[in-house]
Design a protein around this nucleic acid. Structure first.
Length: 785
RNA sequence: GGGUGAUUAGCUCAGUUGGUUUAGAGCGCUGCCUCGACAAGGCAGAGGUCAACAGUUCGAGCCUGUUAUUACCCACCA
């Protein structure tokens, strides 16, 4: 950002830079909070905290000291990942590897003391040839046995380097001979240690060639590579080049190629810290949703490496370490305050004349994740007072993306056990990662992140919330598509229109409630209870997308399409008091269920339903009580009535009959249906939804099957006999085949013996139903002839 | 190289302990409907040999194995 304004880091002091950084934090931190508020996140806005504020900062410094005293923190010279652009070290987790095309150069080195004997190595980085300390071959490689102990001459700069044997070398790769550059490759460094090789660092921190390179000094490593290649070619050293696809590590932040570099850094010894955290997840003390991430976690934890925590940046917590050169040695003092460090230094050295300016504070800051891994503790002011943290800790659930499972989640668990001896949270819910339609991660570089505020503008906050949650099974990828928000918006619209409908009804207290509406009400309560129970199960398993989808279909199909259609007064009439009140109550219950997903619209509906005053009571304080039971009987009746309704509508469609024309249905003679149609209200509902009447005349008219029963419809049209016959014969064939397959099953002794009673009974029922249908169909066909 | 997933309708995805010759949703598509809440809608429809093969089982989208394709994570070869 500063770069855009033309301000360079080198132009600023640390203090100036930090003031810019704070300014940025205030601005963008504010935007993020604003977005969360707009999305209806119900957070305690009074308690926002920031890793860099005083309380959190103190905590970070204290644990640094604590770890140092426990001997779990050390300063050492290691190969680290260097970002030449940001000029800082990175942890292993901040390096992203990607396959990239590169050129593999085969370069020949002359064997020292010979006229025309050469050894050819393969490298993708010719510029590091200038830093070569040796050439390594596999000890048993017959091609190179005669060269062991001899020397080769580094091209262009004519330095003599030994030819060594090391089992690390892969005989299959390239030429089987490896140039060893200890300063610029992790493995080469290891070889260097084994063979006591010289470390020649040919790169400056900014990635340009150093004085040690002798050639191309000051030239950037990429340019130097090209120049080096040219020079080598001109001198006849390049044997061949070929394309190679290999993994290149890039800095997560700056995207530049990471440079392995030897440097002095602070590390956390992870082995002992990791163990309790590993066990916690393996033993299920901390649960992951989805739990398959457990394996990933375990693998990482079991192979954990020390954590490089120093960063050569300004923004962050400055490392609380002071150095003093004393008797040719550099002493380290870790302390909270400068004065304490000085005190320690005086004690240690016995020099009472030391002053603060004799000490040099470490310039580096701590890795941002070192500042964050205390979050579950420090967010409750855990280092200041125990009261809050004792009350809240451990928290119930951490919601985050799986991409920071190592960077953050694992380390928070470690910190929890290290400093409180207890897990930081019971559950970790890993959300899906939002990707764009091309499956790319959302990134600032690509500019493919949707603007939450813009989406809210377009689809409403509830629509956006719905859209994201409906398509977000845990742990998977979410292909972000605005279509999903549109779905949410449409759903909001549907619910809103339902409110408009209910609000439009006149209520006449003198009207009695009819039986159809009474039946519909007991049915919707039954469904509501069923759905409520299912939702609880979903929530327990963090199956949010399933939960919201279930609600969607319950509200849209059951409540709007069926229930309201039955309840709503015929045009010009008023609603009875009882039905109206029940409808409002059910609507309120629905609001409660929907509220976590769509807080804004449900809050508004909640108030309008009973004309509550704003600020009266708000939904956030409401909890769904576990109410009644699922009523199987009522549900069964409604199911059949709706089945018949669908069949009737299908019939209308087929014969292109107007919905306004009442159809007369002949009631089937099946015994159980006699009872069903005697149920008060069942006929009413059928009449209301399909504009059809039921009568008990003889079987005439067009036959159709609804569920397992055969109905006849008296239609005021001429029937295409041939077509009807054809249709019925097709149906007949289907059921005959059906019976055959059921029979096959039932005559299988093993099936009857092994399958559960229920299943066998179901099969028998199926057979009986199928047979009765066939019988009816045969009758109809006869009738038609 | 090690690991974890995925493969179901044209597209994006559900499918929770194996059980109805008939596997769901949304979008898209086709037909009809502006009928007193809702066209951001209603009614209906087409569209799937559940990646392939083998196995376990009375019975497999679901369990086991192999293969193919694919995504991601970790480790890495210059």
């Amino acid at each position: 950002l500063l770069r855009e304004k033309g301000i360079k880091k080198s132009d600023l002091t640390r203090e100036e830079f930090l003031s810019h950084a704070w300014e940025w934090k205030e601005k963008y931190g504010g935007i993020i909070l604003h977005q969360l508020k707009k999305l209806g996140a119900s957070c305690d806005w009074e308690r926002t905290a920031f890793t860099m504020d005083e309380i959190r900062s103190d905590a970070v410094i204290e644990i640094f000291i604590d770890l140092f005293r426990k001997g779990k923190l050390y300063r050492g010279k290691r190969m680290v990942n260097w970002d030449p652009s940001a000029q800082t070290v990175l942890s292993n987790e901040e390096v992203l590897y990607e396959e990239e095309k590169a050129t593999l150069y085969k370069v020949r080195y002359q064997v020292a003391g010979t006229q025309d004997e050469w050894i050819t190595i393969a490298t993708t980085r010719p510029e590091t040839i200038l830093g070569d300390s040796a050439i390594a071959v596999h000890p048993e490689d017959p091609r190179y046995l005669h060269l062991h102990g001899k020397f080769a001459i580094v091209p262009l700069i004519n330095r003599e380097i030994p030819i060594i044997a090391d089992a690390y070398v892969d005989r299959e790769f390239g030429t089987g001979a490896l140039k060893v550059t200890p300063a610029h490759d992790v493995n080469d460094y290891e070889i260097g240690l084994r063979h006591k090789l010289e470390v020649i660092d040919v790169l400056n921190p900014d990635g340009s060639m150093s004085d040690a390179a002798q050639l191309f000094i000051g030239l950037d490593r990429d340019k130097a590579r090209k120049e080096m290649n040219k020079a080598l070619e001109a001198a006849g050293h390049v044997v061949s080049t070929e394309d190679l696809i290999h993994n290149v590590g890039r800095s997560e932040r700056t995207r530049v190629v990471v440079e392995p570099r030897l440097s002095l850094q602070w590390f956390v010894d992870m082995k002992s810290i990791a163990e309790p955290a590993l066990n916690a997840v393996v033993n299920g003390e901390v649960n992951f949703y989805p739990d398959n991430l457990k394996n990933t976690y375990r693998h990482w934890m079991e192979n954990i490496r020390d954590w490089c925590i120093s960063r050569q940046l300004w923004w962050g917590h400055q490392i609380p370490a002071w150095y003093l050169n004393h008797a040719g040695e550099e002493l380290v003092f870790v302390a909270k305050e400068e004065s304490e460090a000085l005190q320690e230094a005086k004690m240690k050295t016995g020099r009472s004349d030391l002053v603060i300016s004799d000490l040099r504070r470490d310039e580096d800051v701590l890795d941002t994740w070192f500042s964050s891994w205390l979050w579950p503790i420090s967010v409750f002011d855990g280092w200041k007072s125990q009261k809050e943290v004792d009350y809240y800790y451990p928290t119930s659930v951490l919601v985050t993306g799986w991409d920071i499972i190592f960077l953050w989640v694992a380390r928070m668990i470690m910190a929890g056990y290290e400093w409180r001896g207890q897990k930081p949270f019971y559950d970790v819910y890993f959300t899906g990662m939002v990707r764009d339609k091309q499956r790319r991660k959302m990134s600032k570089q690509l500019g493919n992140s949707p603007d939450a505020l813009e989406l809210i503008e377009q689809f409403g906050a509830d629509g956006v919330r719905y859209g994201i949650m409906a398509s977000a099974p845990a742990g998977g990828d979410i292909l972000f598509d605005e279509k999903l928000c549109e779905l949410g918006r449409n759903f909001c619209n549907k619910v809103w229109n339902a409110l408009r409908l209910v609000k439009s009804w006149e209520v006449d207290p003198s009207l009695p409630q009819d039986e159809g509406r009474a039946l519909a009400i007991s049915w919707i309560y039954s469904r509501l209870n069923e759905v409520n129970k299912e939702l609880s199960d979903q929530y327990k398993q963090y199956r949010l997308s399933e939960a919201v989808t279930k609600l969607y279909s319950f509200v849209w199909d059951d409540f709007c399409s069926i229930f309201l259609e039955i309840i709503k007064p015929t045009f010009g009439e008023a609603s009875d008091q009882k039905s109206y009140q029940s409808t409002v109550t059910v609507f309120e219950e629905i609001c409660k269920l929907l509220h976590p997903f769509m807080p804004f619209i449900t809050e508004e509906i909640w108030h309008q339903l009973r004309e509550r005053e704003t600020g009266d009571d708000c939904m956030m304080t409401l909890i769904n009580q576990d109410s009644g039971q699922y009523n199987g009987e009522v549900d069964k009746v409604l199911k059949h009535v709706l089945e018949v309704k669908t069949s009737v509508l299908e019939l209308r469609n087929q014969y292109q009959l107007s919905p306004k024309e009442t159809i007369e249905l002949i009631q089937p003679t099946d015994a159980e249906l006699q009872d069903l149609w005697l149920i008060p209200g069942a006929r009413f509902i059928l009449q209301k939804l399909s504009n059809a009447t039921l009568s008990e005349a003889d079987n005439t008219g067009v036959a159709f099957i609804s569920g397992k029963y055969q109905y006849y419809a008296v239609l005021n049209i001429t029937i295409d006999k041939e077509a009807e016959l054809k249709r019925m014969k097709e149906e007949l064939a289907y059921y005959q085949g059906f019976i055959v397959s059921v029979d096959k099953k039932l005559s299988n002794e093993k099936f009857v013996a092994n399958a559960s009673q229920d299943v066998v009974e179901k099969e028998r029922q199926k057979k009986a139903d199928g047979e009765s249908k066939i019988e009816q169909l045969l009758k109809s066909i006869e009738l038609l002839n």
